[in-house]
Design a protein around this nucleic acid. Structure first.
Lengths: 209, 209
DNA sequence: CCTTATCTTGACCCCGTGGTCAAGATGCCT
DNA sequence: AGGCATCTTGACCACGGGGTCAAGATAAGG
């Protein structure tokens, strides 16, 4: 790879990172190129598809931040505290970094690394949930799919809320948590979602546009 | 108004109603015209702006359906049942009629009648919430803004969920309700949203595109 | 039936998106 | 320095959105 190509690739990566993290994963490629001070043709030359760029640029950040949150939760002595802290922390990530919200809602299904991050997050969430359920503090009928559903539904609003300086999502999370303690549980109206149903829901309809 | 103009207006209204209710309020005007078998120029002639069309077409439906739900809640003997039923019913409306979801999230701020429906709904919700709080079954720190925040966050997902035949939102609502009983309440992390903050949040960032 | 006011049409404008590619520029190696 | 391979550019394609308007169609009334 020639030096100038390398330089341009870096400029594009930088621009893409910044734009994705402040506006989400569906920023226009031409805008990224413009922002990087480079022709959009160059972007196509160097990365080919949006997925390749995004995947490269957001993959590590997403894996790190979501992984850290999961590890913190698992390291927590109290299972419930770990679970509650995890939910709060992930919501906070969504609120402050739109790109992460889009990762969790599978907005970019072609990006293999991001999808892997998504799967890992689901697995981590499952273990955090399991632990809290086993401890008897989290209601037993709460599933990983329920958590992801909640995260997905909060993604858009959390972002908007943060920009107004009014973190309404914090109250939302608190209400949810209060409803998730074993003591608060009442029978649920429907069966849990199957993973495939959740998946289809998220990739099928990319959250209103 | 000439007879053919009247006929075209009706065709456009019919098409607009159908498309809005199955795809939300931001359907393209050209698509509505196409669907009505009429030139898009005619649409502009007869209605001028998207807001005028939408307002006329969705206003009554929205007012009726949301009003009915509120009345049913208020007619309910038990305050908590009324409240819980109301939340469920509104979510169901959002899931089955994307247009209503968009109305409640103020996706079309120029449409005065729709905004009035929105305000009326908020007022009705406030009274339903008040009643349940006074009865002691709904936790006292839950506000109208919290409800609207929840409805907004569920809007996109409820729609997607319905189309997969997996009503995940029903479980979401159930978890929320379990967290809203007075007995389940734990202290909240932040102060309630002010109405203006909520408003700014909804109109400022139209939910992730 | 013929006139006229009303209405419809579709070509046209602007803007944006994703994507391609020949021509020209530039880095690099000899 | 020169020549080749690599890379960049920006014009171009097709598509879609919102919106406008002159010219032609048509309903309504005399």
């Amino acid at each position: 790879m020639r030096a100038d190509a390398q330089r341009n690739a870096d400029k594009l990566r930088t621009a893409a990172t910044a734009l994705c993290r402040e506006r989400g994963l569906q920023v226009s490629l031409k805008e990224i190129a413009r922002h990087a001070g480079v022709s959009h043709g160059t972007l196509y030359n160097l990365f080919g598809t949006r997925e390749a760029l995004i995947d490269e640029v957001i993959g590590d950040i997403a894996a790190k931040r979501l992984g850290d949150a999961a590890r913190r939760a698992q390291a927590c002595d109290d299972a419930w505290e770990g679970f509650a802290g995890y939910v709060t922390e992930v919501c906070e990530l969504q609120a402050t970094d739109p790109a992460l919200g889009d990762v969790l809602t599978r907005r970019c299904p072609q990006a293999v690394r991001l999808m892997a991050v998504c799967d890992n997050t689901a697995a981590a969430a499952a273990s955090i949930i399991d632990r809290a359920r086993s401890a008897g503090t989290l209601r037993p009928d709460f599933t990983t799919e329920d958590l992801i559903f909640f995260l997905a539904s909060n993604a858009a609003l959390a972002r908007a809320a943060e920009s107004t300086g009014a973190p309404g999502w914090r109250r939302s999370v608190a209400f949810l948590l209060d409803g998730l303690r074993t003591a608060a549980a009442h029978p649920l109206p429907t069966a849990p979602l199957k993973p495939a149903q959740l998946h289809h829901m998220l990739v099928g309809e990319p959250a209103a546009s």
